[in-house]
């Protein structure tokens, strides 16, 4: 059984819970005592991940950290359809890799702003917000053109990929960090599409959407 070292309010941990839920893979949560113990920074946890951050998975002794790396591993191993990480299609795979790197940017801006507001992390809020807006403009335009081509997801093709999962949490929780999505209508439509995926689960701060019409 997969063990996920997890914290409910962490977006990077949420990305793992979301993919595991969509792929319907059972796992065991190991709740990290973020507060007051800062357990992930402690000596014990550093034996698991010397970088002292979560999420980390332990899949029957195979230990992996870094949110986006774990998504790659989980999709490759537990998605029999091969659609979430399309290794058989070099072009789509390249796009997925590119947007996963882009998601590092949204994590370091949009999600960092949220950590500052909600949990008092010492980040430069204005710089984080400005950075997030720069990235959201790019992503909104990209998704708008995808829609113009009759496609719904970040990477080309008919089905969503882990690039959607990697980006979703940062975008969907951005207003927590004071980043309005007024200017990004295509981004707002895409977050709702993700929320309507079978197996979708949310986290605190994400508003439920109505079901798609029959």
């Amino acid at each position: 059984m997969i063990r996920l070292y997890d914290y409910l309010l962490s977006v990077n941990c949420y990305k793992q819970r979301l993919l595991l839920s969509i792929l319907d893979v059972p796992y065991e949560r190991v709740d990290i005592d973020f507060y007051p113990g800062w357990e992930h920074k402690g000596a014990e946890f550093r034996k698991i991940n010397p970088l002292g951050h979560i999420p980390v998975i332990d899949d029957d002794g195979y230990v992996l950290w870094d949110a986006h790396a774990i998504l790659v591993y989980l999709a490759c191993k537990y998605d029999p359809s091969g659609s979430w990480y399309p290794t058989s299609d070099p072009q789509r795979l390249g796009e997925v890799a590119s947007w996963m790197l882009f998601a590092e940017g949204t994590t370091n801006t949009a999600s960092a702003a949220r950590l500052h507001v909600n949990l008092g992390y010492d980040f430069d809020l204005e710089a984080c917000q400005a950075g997030a807006h720069r990235l959201f403009r790019v992503l909104d335009e990209h998704l708008w053109f995808r829609e113009q081509q009759g496609q719904a997801w970040v990477a080309s093709g008919e089905s969503p990929t882990i690039a959607d999962i990697a980006l979703f949490g940062d975008v969907a929780l951005s207003e927590d960090g004071g980043i309005s999505r007024l200017d990004y209508p295509a981004l707002r439509r895409w977050t709702e599409r993700v929320q309507r995926l079978p197996g979708f689960i949310d986290m605190p701060g994400i508003f439920p959407v109505a079901k798609a019409p029959a």
């Binding site: 914290y7 409910l8 309010l9 709740d31 005592d33 973020f34 507060y35 007051p36 113990g37 909600n118 949990l119 207003e175 927590d176 605190p204 701060g205 508003f207």
Partner: peptide, 19 residues
């Protein structure tokens, strides 16, 4: 630990609404 997490999650449910 459990109680603090419970309260923090509760707060994060409220914060988006109240803000």
């Amino acid at each position: 630990e459990d109680y603090a997490e419970y309260q923090l999650v509760t707060n994060s449910e409220d914060i988006v609404i109240v803000e």
